[in-house]
Amino acid sequence: MTDSPRRGRLFVLSGPSGVGKSTVLARLRRDVPQLWYSVSATTRTPRPGETNGVNYFFVSADEFGRLVADQQMLEHAYFAGNHYGTPRGPVEEHLAAGQDVLLEIDVQGARQVRQAPGLGSEAVLVFLAPPSFDELIRRLVGRGTEDEAATAARLEAARDEMASQPEFDHTLVNTSVEDATAGLVALLAEPCSPAPADRT
């Protein structure tokens, strides 16, 4: 056994809006505190209870544009009037130091990570799916964090995102926070090779 650190593993958790990614991530933080959780940057305004640097880095559109222009974003997307993205530097630093990293991002972002030079081939992509599309609608409408137009946009995008499941290495169905978290914990404990796309 060597004292030099192994390279960390990069995990990407994705899925449609309203599927419960943030809730599962909060439980995973409690159960796997040694995992490094990347914080995304966004140009949207904070929701009640959100903290800058914890939930997101809330930045201006100009600052976000500078980060993209300087190639400091691992992935980025524009959705429902706002920009979202993952700062590249911290992810690469933690992987090089031997720490496993988890990104919680949308499907567009997951695709960009898969194509990222030097990182995409090692990323393990995990799709969090709802028990049904009707249940996803109920969750999205019920959370009441956005106006009707924004909710409709998310539902339209979710139909396309649900069709992307075959692109991911694993699919977990979020029937409960406990079961989804347990599934993620099991994946984190597996050998570092991505699984075949049809594996659940």
Score class of each variant (00 low, 15 high):
Asp134Thr: 10
Arg199Gly: 01
Gly183Ile: 00
Phe127Gln: 14
Gln34Cys: 10
Ser38Tyr: 08
Ala157Met: 04
Gly20His: 01
Pro5His: 13
Thr151Leu: 09
Ser38Gln: 15
Ala97Lys: 09
Gly18Trp: 01
Phe133Cys: 07
Pro48His: 07
Glu63Ile: 12
Ala186Thr: 14
Phe79Pro: 06
Tyr78Asp: 00
Leu119Trp: 02
Ala26Gly: 09
Pro16Phe: 02
Thr175His: 14
Arg139Glu: 05
Leu25Cys: 07
Gly142Asn: 03
His94Lys: 14
Leu188Lys: 02
Thr181Phe: 01
Glu50Asp: 02
Gly118Met: 02
Val68Cys: 11
Thr200Gln: 14
Arg88Trp: 07
Leu10Lys: 05
Thr171Asn: 04
Arg47Glu: 13
Asn82Ser: 15
Glu104Pro: 04
Arg154Thr: 02
Glu104Leu: 03
Glu156Tyr: 01
Glu148His: 12
Asn82Glu: 15
Thr23Ser: 13
Ala186Ile: 01
Tyr78Arg: 12
Leu128Gln: 06
Thr145Ile: 12
Phe64Asp: 08
Val141Ala: 08
Thr145Met: 13
Arg66Tyr: 05
Ala152Thr: 06
Val54Glu: 14
Thr175Gln: 09
Gly15Leu: 01
Arg9Gly: 09
Trp36Cys: 10
Ala149Trp: 07
Ala182Trp: 02
Glu148Thr: 13
Gly183Trp: 05
Glu50Gln: 13
Asp62Trp: 06
Leu136Trp: 03
Gly20Arg: 02
Leu140Met: 12
His170Glu: 14
Pro87Lys: 04
Ser14Tyr: 10
His76Tyr: 12
Thr200Val: 13
Phe11His: 10
Gly98Trp: 06
Thr175Trp: 11
Gly20Thr: 06
Glu148Pro: 09
Thr151Ala: 09
Pro90Glu: 01
Pro191Cys: 03
Ala69Asn: 10
Ser60Ala: 03
Glu161Pro: 12
Asp169Gly: 04
Asn52Gly: 14
Glu146Gln: 10
Thr181Gln: 06
Gly109Thr: 02
Ala163Lys: 15
Gly65Val: 03
Asp179Ala: 15
Ser14Gln: 12
Leu95Val: 00
Lys21Thr: 03
Gly118Gln: 02
Ala77Phe: 09
Arg139Leu: 08
Pro166Met: 02
Val177Lys: 15
Val173Phe: 05
Ser164Trp: 04
Leu128Val: 02
Met73Pro: 12
Ala195Glu: 01
Val32Cys: 14
Ala195Trp: 00
Pro196Val: 00
Phe58Lys: 04
Met73Gly: 05
Met1Asn: 13
Val185Gln: 09
Tyr37Trp: 09
Ser14Lys: 12
Pro5Ala: 14
Asp198Leu: 03
Pro5Ile: 07
Gly142Arg: 09
Ala182Leu: 07
Phe79Thr: 09
Ala80Gly: 05
Phe133Asp: 14
Arg138Ala: 07
Glu93Phe: 10
Glu92Phe: 11
Val126Asn: 05
Gly109Lys: 08
Glu93Ser: 12
Val107Pro: 10
Ala61Cys: 11
Thr171Cys: 12
